[in-house]
Design a binder for these strands. Structure first.
Length: 896
RNA sequence: GGGCGUUUAGCUCAGCUGGCUAGAGCGCAUGCUUCACACGCAUGAGGUCACAGGUUCAAGUCCUGUAACGCCCACCA
């Protein structure tokens, strides 16, 4: 026996540091145009430049890596484009915070140009950490193609798109009520607002009529906005207020005179039936204001403090401070009728995490309706497939109710809007080049819009901007459209839907044909991973402790389709143990000597040389190849992980390797050679099947065992193919054989159970007797009694269909036979009877269910013939087994 | 207010188009330093498949309703 030169346990860090640089250097990750090969492209969902690797990224990128490696092995020409997103608000805020802390400066202190220089500086120094971290996960990204959304070329794409849409009339500048974040002081899109349930109040306020003829009571959740009221609205059908419509009210605190108007929107049953109208600060009021031509009074500064329009009592106050002050003054004036507790939903800024302030302002918008139509069609026609499919509903709902997209942001970090205002006339120039002359009045003084574009305005172009669109080039034609997008369902509106629209609009083609939505990772208690909770483990630490493969495998194993994942670090033991199991199977193999020269195929193999167990493992491997391929094809990664585990650990290691030992340590050189060849063949398949999810350990082992030379790689190996029917025939892999071998293993288990019942350790060799009750089964075990002897660790195994024990000895019944453990004098008859009694009960339960079924005429006449047939067969088998158990029991009872 | 998802062993989850004496991992119990692996091996215990109806020869699997938990969308002051 050779001594192993492999360590006793797998050390992930060795393989990880060894292989990644080699793969990269040898160009395995490079996306090349390969004529005759089908391209398979994935663009990474670009993480924020400010980002650090999280478990969410681990899941997302492992999935992409699995697909890339799988498709490469299947012979496709792969290209995985990595990159990062400039993440406007997030990055700007990060650098601003740093400036504030370290230098006590604001961005305005520095000025636009100097500030941007500092952001770039920051980006070069600290940005892209996540890109470096991704490498330690093993991702096969083409790093030569790394892109950044603010790269020169990608910025050209953004400008091009802006100009094209403007020229098409799909981008316009308008003064609208938009969502304003007072913390970051910029406009937001509707998608950047999240709602929170807030316990507030409903204040009832008395508004007196100008003519002194009494008052009207309005109800509001935001009393401070009354300073901007320009009307009070009632429902035209509401009889209580019929006579009051058109009358004037004297607005308290402000002193302004405002009309009572009638609008259908007002719900008579809510509050008092009368609504104060603040068109400049509430979306509904804005609509009413539009309909009635009301004045819009903006009472807030851009940080949500009160401006002059709020009146001198309140100017400068924060909005909440102002609220208290207004309420206090109203109380003093006796105008506050009552205050109710009131729970409602309030919009918050995703960035600033403060309540959004609706605000009238001039912004740039994209008209979405016409862009959405073809995108809806693309998904509903099935050209683009969502996994899981239910997200289509969510997508459709949003798309069908889509509203114009506010794309301008009052930030500095981002793509500057390519719009130029003529200083001499009203004209706006929108162009790719900086214009020198106004096309309206000929004026030469033009000033560029100060604002930048929403980050997503560059992200939505990502699938083609990374290939240098709008410049036509071979890469763009070859790699676009991409194949699969892997992302979280949380950005289905922000990103996925918009990419589909952009792809169709600017390339005339869908950007990808499949979208896989990942699960959300939670902690063991089901809470979202978050920094503030401190329940978000650093994947880099996990990799150091368990290995990248372990982390990858575990995360995939834990990720069912479409439900959340409950993760904790200790679960990575599963992946680590699995990698170690795989490692040790190789270590065991290495001890047996050199790898078989003809491991790669089964050509020329004579089935008569094969042990039944060899044929069994070949059949099981074939089934595994089929299933695993299907699972990956269907994006069922979880099933892929489960199936791998079961095949490798249970079928290959627990049964086949143990059985193979009988051949390895047996007399026949020929048999040993054949078994080694089968072992090598199947194990080679195992390494390839596992490679997509566990790239490092499989590569290391592929080399250690000599499947490939130094310059080769499992990454370049072919994905295992299932056997043709003719080949299965030639090798004798029929289902009956497979079932008989499985039955043999069941009998082995029954034999071991006897040992266990009598506390005889596996290490102690003992005699067994085997009594087959089925001729075909007997033939199978007699063809290779050595494997069964090894599996039972029997000193002697006697196979005898006519075996009758002398006296009582422990025994067990299986479908095709009985196993006896002769232990004269040691038998515990009561224990034996109890065990058999339990088995008999189980059989009886099964039998009575079957008897009922089969004696039911309806079942026999209505169920498919093959089902009835199968149940009859089972009934026969159970009855036979039952009779055997019964016989053993009466024997034992007599001995008592 | 709409929409979606989940509910199967102590825990985390499998179980496709209905045919199951309901499976795995962890944990648990017992025994093993057996010549790959204690990150291991062997054996075993553990479930009226959330609840109530219905369809069917047959339901964890299909339908209806209920409950609990979770997520998304939504301008009712």
């Amino acid at each position: 026996m050779a001594s192993p030169d492999m360590a006793k346990a797998y050390d992930p860090s060795l393989a990880e540091t060894k292989w990644y640089p080699r793969w990269e250097k040898r160009g395995y990750f490079a996306g090349k145009i390969e004529p005759g090969k089908e391209p398979y492209t994935i663009v990474i969902p670009p993480p924020n430049v400010t980002g650090m690797l999280t478990l969410g990224h681990v899941l997302n990128n492992t999935l992409q890596d699995i697909l890339i490696r799988f498709e490469k092995m299947r012979g496709k020409s792969i290209c995985w484009v990595p990159g990062t997103d400039h993440a406007g608000i997030a990055t700007q805020a990060k650098v601003e915070a740093m400036l504030r802390e370290e230098e006590g400066l604001t961005r305005r202190d520095l000025g636009r140009e100097a500030f941007l220089a500092r952001v770039w500086e920051w980006k070069e120094k600290y940005g892209g950490t996540i890109i470096r971290q991704l490498r330690s996960l093993g991702t096969a990204c083409d790093w030569e193609r790394e892109r950044f959304t603010l790269d020169q070329r990608l910025s050209e794409a953004v400008e091009e798109v802006f100009v094209r849409l403007y020229e098409k009339g799909l981008i316009y500048r308008g003064t609208r009520l938009i969502n304003w974040c007072p913390k970051t002081r910029t406009a937001l899109s509707d998608e950047e607002v999240y709602h929170q349930t807030v316990k507030g109040h409903l204040w009832h306020i008395r508004y007196p009529f100008s003519d002194g003829s009494g008052h009207l009571v309005v109800a509001t959740t935001r009393p401070e906005t009354m300073l901007g009221d320009t009307a009070v609205a009632v429902n035209p059908q509401d009889e209580r207020f019929q006579a009051l419509i058109g009358k004037k009210l004297r607005l308290p605190l402000a002193g302004r005179e405002i009309p009572v108007i009638a609008d259908d929107w007002v719900k008579p049953e809510f509050g008092t039936g009368a609504v104060k109208v603040t068109p400049a600060h509430d979306p509904n009021d804005y609509e009413i204001g539009q309909r009635h031509g009301l004045e819009m009074i903006n009472i807030f500064n851009d940080d949500a403090t009160m401006n002059e329009a709020a009146g001198e009592d309140f100017v400068g106050m924060d909005r909440y401070e102002c609220r208290e002050s207004v309420v206090q003054q109203l109380t003093e004036l006796g105008l506050l009728v009552k205050v109710d507790e009131y729970t409602h939903e309030v919009g918050y800024s995703e960035r600033g995490h403060v309540a959004v302030e609706p605000r009238i302002s001039a912004q740039w918008f994209v008209k979405m309706k016409t862009l959405a139509e073809p995108a809806i069609e693309a998904v509903n026609s099935g050209r683009i497939h969502f996994h899981p499919e239910r997200w289509v509903k969510t997508y459709n709902h949003w798309m069908e109710n889509i509203r114009d997209w506010c794309i301008s942001r009052q930030l500095w970090w981002g793509h500057r809007i390519p719009a130029y205002y003529c200083q001499s006339c009203e004209h706006i120039e929108v162009s790719r080049e900086t214009p020198t002359r106004c096309s309206g009045c000929g004026g030469t003084e033009l000033r560029q819009d100060e604002d930048v574009l929403d980050t997503w305005f560059s992200s939505w172009l990502w699938p083609f901007s990374v290939f240098d669109w709008p410049h036509d080039n071979p890469d763009l034609r070859n790699f676009y459209p991409t194949q699969t997008l892997v992302t979280g369902p949380d950005i289905i509106f922000f990103w996925v839907a918009r990419m589909i629209m952009a792809g169709l609009e600017f390339r005339g083609e869908i950007p990808f044909s499949n979208v896989y939505f990942t699960s959300i990772i939670r902690d063991a208690d089901g809470r979202k991973m978050s920094k503030s909770l401190g329940n978000s483990p650093d994947p880099i630490d996990v990799i150091a402790e368990f290995g990248a493969d372990a982390l990858r495998y575990t995360v995939i194993y834990l990720a069912p389709v479409g439900t959340d994942i409950r993760y904790s670090n200790d679960k990575c033991e599963l992946g680590r143990n699995f990698a170690n199991k795989l490692w040790n199977a190789a270590r065991f193999r290495q001890i047996q000597g050199e790898i078989s020269p003809d491991w790669a195929n089964l050509d020329g193999l004579d089935k008569s040389q094969l042990r039944p167990d060899d044929r069994w493992i070949l059949a099981r491997a074939d089934a595994a190849i089929r299933n695993l391929t299907t699972h990956l094809d269907q994006f069922d990664f979880h099933a892929y992980a489960l199936q791998l585990y079961d095949f490798v650990w249970s079928e290959f290691c627990d049964w086949y390797v143990e059985s193979a030992k009988s051949a390895f340590y047996g007399e026949s050189e020929e048999r040993k050679r054949t078994t080694l060849r089968i072992f090598d063949h199947v194990y080679g398949q195992v390494l390839r099947l596992m490679h997509p999810v566990m790239p490092f350990v499989t590569e290391e082992l592929y080399h250690n065992l000599g499947y490939v030379g130094d310059e080769g790689s499992v990454m370049l190996a072919d994905w295992p193919r299932p056997l043709e029917a003719a080949e299965q025939e030639r090798l004798g892999l029929d289902p009956t054989l497979v079932e008989l071998v499985a039955e043999k293993f069941r009998l082995v288990r029954a034999g071991r159970n006897l040992r266990s019942a009598y506390n005889i350790p596996m290490a102690q060799k003992i005699d067994y007797f085997l009594k087959p009750t089925d001729a075909a089964f007997q033939e199978i075990i007699e063809r290779d009694p050595a494997s069964m002897q090894t599996l039972l660790n029997a000193s002697k195994l006697t196979i005898d269909a006519a075996f009758e024990p002398e006296g009582s000895i422990p025994s067990a019944v299986e479908k095709h036979g009985l196993v006896y453990m002769p232990l004269t004098g040691l038998i515990d008859i009561d224990a034996e009877l109890a065990r058999l009694d339990k088995q008999r009960d189980e059989l009886l339960r099964g039998l009575s269910a079957l008897d009922n079924k089969l004696s039911n005429d309806k079942f026999v006449s209505k169920a498919p013939a093959e089902v009835v047939q199968r149940e009859r067969q089972r009934q026969r088998e159970l009855r036979e087994k039952f009779d055997q158990v019964q016989a053993l029991m009466s024997d034992l009872s007599r001995q008592r």
